[in-house]
Structures are given as C-alpha cells and as structure tokens.
Amino acid sequence: MTSIMVVDDDQDLAEMLGIVLTGAGYEVDLVNRGDEVMALFTSQNPDLVLLDVMLPGLNGVEVCKLIREVSMVPIVMLSAKGDKQDVVAGLEAGADDYMVKPFDPLELVARMKVRLRRSMTEVNSELFIGNLKIDQIEHSIIRDGQVIALTRLEFDLLVALAKEPGRVFSREALLSEVWGYRPATDTRLVNVHIQRLRSKIELNPEDPKIIITVRGVGYKAGVPGSSQ
C-alpha cells in the first residue's frame, strides 16, 4: 500500500487530510512538528511527503532539505501564504510541487497520483539528451559513465524533454505533462526546477547545452551527443 507522510501543525487539517487520503486509498502517517519528521521518515520510508511550510520546531523548507539529503522521494509543499519567497524557497530546497491553501482536495490527490505514477512506471528504453544517457530501466542519468543523482521529478522533466527532441515545450505544456496541472497557473514552478536541474546536469549552468531556453516560448532538448 502506498504510504503518505502528512506534516502539518494544524491538527484538524492534518486529520482531514488523513480522512481524504485514506478515502483515496493511501496509508497515512501524521506528523505535527518539523523536528519529528526525520525520525519517522527513516522508519516509515513513505512514498510521498506532504509538507507544510510553517511548522513548529523546524520549518518546512529546512525539513525539505533534510529529506533531500537522504531521499529522492516526491515532496509536495503546502503553503498558506502563496507568497513568492515561500514558494521559491520550498522549490529550491528540493520540493517537487506545491499547493497553496486552500487547495482543492481533488486536485491535490490528482497531483499526488501524477507524482506517484511517474516515479513507479518505467519505460523500457534508453534516451539521449545532450551528452547524457537516460536509462529508464535503471532510472538513472549517465554522463561519461558517471551516474548523476536526480529527484524523480527532475528525472521526469528531463525524460519529457528528451522524448521529443525537436519540440519546444512551453512552460504550460511542461506543467501539464510533468506536474499534471490543468490549464497552467504558475509557471515559476517550471523555472525553478529547470534551474535546479541545470545545476545538476549542465557542465556550465550559465551556458546550458542540454536544456536550451527558447526566448519567449519555453525550453527544448539539446542535440543528443553534442559535446559541451
């Protein structure tokens, strides 16, 4: 059974989330404090973490960083403010997605499904983007025999671009393909993740060769095999 870890200091909200998610068929662990997350995380090893930003003990952004140090598990931040700094800080700390309260529970479940499905289904093929080899069976990225560690979302993002090498993806298209968003709302999500991804895979993130920006439109994959 898929297990979800819900971290929120509001007990009622956490309980309600528990009801909704249990109803959707997930096993749910509830945590109320930021500093209690890691202990439970290592013992339970959840498949996805729902993480509130404002937490007692340790705030959500810090918790997110701690989780990322040990795991590439999908993390969805829950923000009450919806302010730019909050959201960007969460994404930069390694969160895959975020939901602004008050969110639609159906949409939350839908997005969680996308995150969980993507990280479980594997396509039986190898892809190339720039000078990288994407091994979808091993779920790994290889450059010159070296494996680069990516989160599942980053992997999905790279795969989406690599699958259609000629296509220029608008941010909205990426949002709906990778995050499962309906008519796109917030393209910052894409910007931040592209930047994080570039910092991991590009030799020179200032002059990207693997994920190329198409001004005014979006992004496209670099030519396979091109040297940097």
């Binding site: 909200l13 009801i19 909704v20 109803g23 309260k101 008050p102 969110f103 529970p105």
Partner: peptide, 13 residues
C-alpha cells in the same frame, strides 16, 4: 487559509 482548507476538504467529503 488553513481552516478554510479543512472546511473545503470536509465539504468535499
């Protein structure tokens, strides 16, 4: 926002 989220989820259920 936080109570509203709870209310919303409850109403949805």
């Amino acid at each position: 926002r936080t109570p509203l989220t709870t209310i919303r989820m409850a109403s949805q259920v």
